[in-house]
Nucleic acid binder design. Structure first.
Lengths: 208, 208
DNA sequence: GAGGGAGTATTACGAAAGTTATATTGGATC
DNA sequence: GATCCAATATAACTTTCGTAATACTCCCTC
């Protein structure tokens, strides 16, 4: 049983190159080729291929938005990004949208084919520096932002308790100081972070 | 210039196998071999190898804790996990601690060597299903938790505004309803989530 | 040893948040 | 047609939060 593939790519040369090369292998069957996200969105839910190779920079709807919408209708289909973008935001967005693999356009045809196989077997093939970006993303999740640096150790301690949803009096009890002092600390925290309330402070200190 | 490698692994057979095979290549120089995290922690900061291949399950200090501590002292050293663990928590912890690559112990020696090279060149080599786990981790960051399901659409809408730090009156203005109504909605949200205030609700609805 | 910052504290006030009770409307269910 | 629930609203009330001004101590630096 061969792996069914669709390709969404606006550049004719790239599109045909991919299609022709992939078609050489009996492991694959190219079941759809689209120039725009709109076309792909209209057809993919009916074709339900195993894998979609998706460009990001398309005329009209971009590839990420296209994944988001197709994923809704055909949750079984897996997406391989194929793009020149290697900035953090695009990578992050693509994964959030539901992409499981991410290859840069300088990837060789042979490696692309290997990666599609790996994707189909439940892996998440990515170009080397994309993988590193993703690892760094995970490493930094929930990490304190640079804004925390302007706070004193005591202020950081209090902000962390504040972030847990504790009342002033609970904080004061835990730290063995008066609620008045807690109030002062928190007021200074707000000043330093340029915010007006607890929630804004938490968002600012711990990246949204 | 060859890549300097250290190995931390308690099982003698694995340890020696790695060391001997890696030493075969002139690209690498094994500069340290340790049986425990404690030994590694004592020596690694002085050796400062390019790469450390690190087991997780060690007697005494585990490999993740070991990375955390060594990373503090030698930020330039990169770590490759080499372990049987493939559960989400261990993978997540390892990356948080500062590991940049993650191989399972069923990986072939040749692939290990290739992965170490890739790591050294700034990539993040991982076994296929580990990569998928990490991608899924990123996909799910900041996602609403199951608690959100008990809320009505309107309540979800209000909770999202609440999470941005808006005042009741700002929310009421934005939704064109009275602050009294906002108050009621929020009160019901708290009831349904079994919490007493805004911050607790946010933490519960959007996984910490 | 004078100055500055961090941490502590007190008092006072106004704004915002959260609780409780009651009520109307409209849509869905039975 | 009756019942239930979501969404809306009003009113009265308590608690918590946030702002402001002032002050003392300790520690570090110049």
């Amino acid at each position: 049983m061969s792996i069914s593939i669709a390709i969404v790519e606006d550049l004719e040369a790239v599109r045909n190159g991919l299609k022709d090369f992939i078609s050489l292998s009996t492991d694959f069957l190219v079941v759809g080729v689209f120039k725009t996200g709109e076309e792909a969105l209209a057809e993919l839910p009916h074709i339900t291929p195993d894998i979609v190779i998706m460009d990001i920079n398309l005329p009209g709807m971009n590839g990420i938005e296209c994944i988001r919408r197709v994923k809704d209708k055909s949750p079984g289909t897996q997406f391989m990004m194929f793009t020149v973008y290697e900035n953090d935001e695009k990578v992050f967005e693509a994964l959030k949208a539901g992409a499981s693999g991410y290859l840069l356009k300088n990837t060789g045809l042979l490696e692309i084919v290997e990666s599609v196989k790996e994707l189909h077997e439940g892996g998440s093939p990515m170009s080397a520096n994309i993988a590193r970006k993703i690892v760094n993303l995970v490493r930094d999740t929930g990490k304190e932002t640079a804004f925390m640096d302007v706070l004193s150790p005591r202020e950081k301690e209090i902000l962390k308790l504040l972030a847990k949803g504790l009342l002033y009096k609970e904080i004061s009890h835990q730290l063995q100081i008066t609620t008045g002092t807690v109030r002062i600390h928190i007021h200074k925290i707000y000043e330093k972070l340029h915010v007006q309330n607890r929630t804004e402070a938490i968002n600012k200190a711990f990246g949204k």
